[in-house]
Nucleic acid binder design. Structure first.
Lengths: 350, 350
DNA sequence: CCTGGATTTTAGATCGATCTAACGGCGTTA
DNA sequence: TAACGCCGTTAGATCGATCTAAAATCCAGG
């Protein structure tokens, strides 16, 4: 007896006193199978039995073991999210939106960082595969090729692209960068600006190309010089230092459109340092409309891309595809909106 | 023959043509156990055999099944991270730091959002438990009580607190908010300021209390009025609107210390709107020193708390504890540093 | 040639859930 | 009365890895 007890204790210790479905079943005097049906809220089980089992679960402090369930059922209730960079507030907003959708559906997110490089991205995708995720939301790293589509279909793993896309064969959730940029240009043109510069930075990917394309198309449509695209550094303090770059090519622009709000922030600081007053000496438009746009002085006019909403939509797209894998590829392009504040003014004197 | 083939195909289809360790073993002409030793890089297996198995893995496109491994081995190579809020760039930095440490150790992070509320926090903790995480990094939601410690030990789940703490019985990684605040006060005092206000917002938790305490201690030590603590709204645009609140109590302060950089941003905008020039009419100090501090004009003097580093340390603490659960509780308090820029100036006229 | 010890390899049980196919009880119909 | 369908329940196989304990192999020394 004493020996038996010892053995039981050591077993408990070894197993970290885990309560299994079998324990619950015994305690409620039903079979393992019935208990399983109860935890999964199956309608097959009788009301009285259900209540007895639920009571047993509560009494024993049972916690469901997803790992074991996954092994048998091929569903992990887990999705993978790969972004190029965690620290960027823009991606943080995106993740926030995803978490809302994904969490509401009862799944959890594994997040991974690709560092915006294809080799690291391949490694993290492999890792997610090993963890048996039910699907992946990927913001493709710069340099990702369209063989991503064939890989994903070979893996039989639902995959949606977010913010950037490299293939039409997979779902995609992003913003209408082209239209957003056109709206920004048209607005400046309506204020009388004729020499408009586009300040870009960062790695080159679909969202980058679409913004450039939107800028050029709109400039051409207005009969203006479409080639005034200037690259600036990545860090905000360096952007400020090298703000002059904007004036280095040909005629000095009277307005600058920025690749994102970070560039706008940097240029605003740089212009300030040079004694240029934004909204009077030069007009400035940002892109993304993150929270800080409201805090700048003068307030920054910016094209809103609503990363939160894109995240939500990307998650919805993925959940749909997990439910019906054979669906044809879909895309959800979030409309953008020019949020007009105080950083632009009509061109008065030239 | 044809029938057999069909059967095989349908099995493949059903199983999503998954390659298992048994397939690899057969292909390499060894046992399942040996193959398992190879994937886990055990030194027990001979060189020639190892190579044969590795070749088989490559040829068949084998992917490791963590789920199955976890079931047997009680290690999921997964940790859970709970933050109050994904969208805050501060937490984004924290996550970035964690990801670096955790990823390097070969684990992945499941992230969850507590919404800074204890009930939702309880739900996500339960969810993480169901997913069998090896440990949890938790930034305790406002209102979390110290029974967290007994819960965690009951769950036998390694848990480290990050940024905020509710108990001494669990590991903790945070910043030295008290010292940081004292340094800020002392700096302003050394510039001649005597009436200094502390502008706070957000929910109340240990990090909040420590900052207030640091402020009051330092003010008292300098013989100054320690009660000038003012609450401002949460959103940056509302902070700007209500910046006057800073002057509403007693004598008007000549310097303001902010709870974080977001408050500093809002107040800076509000002061600008009222024609006050920062660094001349009023001095301003931020807290956290996130990227934007450098982009403000004038540049924002701010107390750097290095969330990235805290994230890295929290992860290291957790990995240590997973390796040796019996370790006494430890804490890592990141030193803060006052990053002096241009938003403060000596008090000349009064 | 046999023995002992170290090194490699293996069969079989096991983790905790889900799934399949079947079972008993009950009311209905032929 | 036998046959049938329906409902709630269940035993036993199964998922893909790991672990344990023992077996096979090899080599040196007596």
């Amino acid at each position: 007896m004493a020996i038996l007890w010892c053995e039981e204790m050591s077993r408990q210790d070894q197993k970290r006193n885990k309560v299994t479905l079998l324990d619950v079943a015994k305690h409620a005097d039903v079979s393992r199978a019935t208990a399983s049906l109860v935890v999964r809220k199956s309608p097959l089980v009788g009301t009285e039995t259900r209540q007895r089992v639920e009571a047993a679960m509560r009494e024993l402090g049972y916690v469901y073991n997803m790992g074991a369930a996954r092994l048998r059922a091929e569903r992990s209730h887990t999705i993978g999210v790969v972004v190029p960079n965690l620290t960027n507030p823009f991606f943080a907003e995106l993740l926030g939106g995803m978490e809302a959708s994904v969490g509401a559906a009862g799944l959890v997110m594994i997040i991974a960082n690709s560092g915006d490089g294809p080799s690291r991205q391949a490694a993290v995708l492999q890792r997610l595969r090993e963890h048996g995720v039910d699907g992946i939301i990927l913001c493709p790293a710069a340099g990702t090729t369209d063989e991503l589509a064939s890989q994903a279909s070979g893996w039989k793993l639902p995959l949606v692209q977010a913010l950037r896309h490299v293939t039409d064969e997979l779902d995609y959730a992003g913003a209408d960068y082209v239209a957003g940029m056109e709206e920004a240009v048209d607005y400046l043109v309506s204020l009388g600006h004729r020499t408009i510069c586009f300040a870009v930075h960062g790695p080159i990917h679909s969202a980058y190309r679409e913004r450039v394309q939107g800028f050029r198309d709109a400039m051409k449509r207005s009969g203006l010089q479409p080639e005034l695209v200037i690259r600036v550094p990545d860090r905000v303090d360096q952007i400020a230092q090298e703000a002059d770059a904007v004036f280095a090519q040909g005629k000095a622009p009277t307005a600058v459109i920025c690749f994102n709000d970070l560039v706008a922030h940097g240029l605003a600081a740089g212009f300030y340092d040079r004694g240029l007053k934004i909204g009077r000496d030069i007009s400035l438009i940002g892109f993304d409309d993150v929270a800080d746009a409201e805090a700048m002085r003068p307030r920054l006019t910016s094209v809103s891309t609503a990363p939160n909403e894109i995240g939500r939509r990307a998650a919805a797209l993925l959940l749909d595809r997990i439910a019906r894998p054979a669906l044809p590829p879909r895309r959800w392009i979030n409309p953008t909106r020019l949020h007009i504040r105080d950083s632009c003014s009509p061109l008065s004197s030239s």
